[in-house]
Design a binder for these strands. Sequence first.
RNA 1: CGGGGUUUGGCGCAAUUGGCUAGCGCGCAGCGUUCGGGACGCUGAGGCUGCAGGUUCGAAUCCUGUAACCCCGACCA
Length: 570
Amino acid sequence: MRYSKLFGKTTKTVTKDAVAVSHKYLLQGGFIRQLAAGRYSLLPLGFIVAKKIEQVIRNEVEKTGAQEVIVPTLHPIELWQRANRDKKFGPAMMRVKDRNNSEFTLGATAEVVMLDLVDQFNVSYKDLPINIYQFSQKFRDEARATGGLLRVREFVMKDGYSFHQDETDLMVTFNNYKQAYINIFKKLELEAIPVEADSGAIGGNLSYEFMTETEVGEDTIAKCNCGYVANLEKATFIKQVMNAGQKKEPLAEVEAVRGATMEDGVALHKLPLWQQTKDVMFVDETGRFILALIRGDFSVNETKLKNLVNATELRHATDEEIINTLHSYPGFISPVGIKENLNKDTKFILVADDSIRTTINMYGGSNRQNIDLLNINIDRDWHADVEGDIAQVENGFLCPQCKKWELKLVKAIENGHIFNIGYVYSEPMNSTFVGQDGTLKKLYMGSYGIGIGRALATIVETHHDDKGIIWPSLVAPYQIHLLALDLSDKNVQLQADELYEQLLKKNLEVLYDDRPDITAGSKFADADLLGIPSRLVISKRSLDKGGIEIKLRTSPNSSVTSIKEYLSSV
RNA sequence: CGGGGUUUGGCGCAAUUGGCUAGCGCGCAGCGUUCGGGACGCUGAGGCUGCAGGUUCGAAUCCUGUAACCCCGACCA
């Protein structure tokens, strides 16, 4: 490609809106342009990279037996409703109507469409597993798009789906896919760690996210030197026993004129934070109140809580609700006696983090203003409806795996996600296959996604220097960046054009900077910015030295070789 | 959705006690000199100052409304 003819140019300045490095360099290099918030065009350079990433994915994924298909972008809303997905995905779904007033959703993911497709073939166990995938535009009305290509509202995703007789059968494909993803990210030179994760809106009981550590990541993962890694929504830690063995003292009521914070409680009672009860009141999407109880030095992870109590949405209860509906008082909520004060029609559940068992004689509110209770003990003074882990991991907490080292929280980008979905969709959609015994059985399902644009941006995030991008060779838009300097010199011009033609004849991917009136410095700067792996310079000077100068983007040094020699080496 | 901010040629910015023809740099086009790390000179094109309404002799500047975009948070594959 002659650079003079390439659509999309480099720019010296870039909008101040570009905060993430990848956003900045991709704009500056002419890889992408923004249309609207979270909606980007890929220019030729960006599109070539995207296609190369797709090819890497295609090659690896097909090793799992996956076959490529393509399904429509607009999905009949009824299909999503049948699978109960419209509620789970909710506001992130884009909806449109056609002229007949039929409602569609713009595909945010395609589990139900693929399941419906498979269903049409009346499959038997002999057909299974079925393993299909596509590359297609996905639409998600994200609350907030950020970081250029890192989180967008419209993007190309590779989404794969597999259908099985049972979980055992799925696990074969699932593990193959896991390996395929590991291979893909290795080839893309993205260090993506498989992390056990929450399945979120896709559903299912086992999922792995492939996380790449970067400063601009929007997810947080907990890591330990021993190798333990988990998404914050899933990560656990050792909750050390504090005073659990001690003697239980009698429950006592004391006056407590204090503020509503944990610190106020510590200051007033001169007792450790961990001995205080933390009482957080949530309301879920059904209007059910959820009192989450946890040791004072921990905090509640809302995703864990949601999963534990089967809620899809949580919000904090308002002061007004705490006073009028729950007959308690903000800052003085207590598990002791709260249920007895409720009206019959108030839906309420009391959840305790298991850390509550590591300490006794706790102190905290009494559901009345300015009165605290001392020596609160579970089982004696109150009972939890549900007990489990709802605690948020924090830096320095003890690793649950090795039980020796501290967990570190790091920022990461989720670049892929594979799900063991099970019967989440085949159940409501009644999707079945004929088993060996002749009876109908439910299809067991898995799904596997990678966002192309996000992978592209993550590569830039992790492969750049202060001058620009450094593309891994497999996904570089071109392999060779040929710079011709001194083009006013006829000889140089001739030799450069000739060299370009020769390289093309060898089927090499060459970007030829043939701009006649651009200074050397600009061409070098652009070459650094674009990040093509190997740079060739042909100029009066290089020809005087015997040929062309070769420099790799990754190296500060260059060498000169004759054109003939170079051509025979590539 | 809550908090903060921004909006002036393609990009980065300036001009507000309301007042000349809305400036500057980059970029773009033409000519010339240059030519190994973002050269220089001259010339030129390019703006309904986000949009709508209002106040005024006069609005980029004041008022009202509205939209888009960015950041933090909430949310989220």
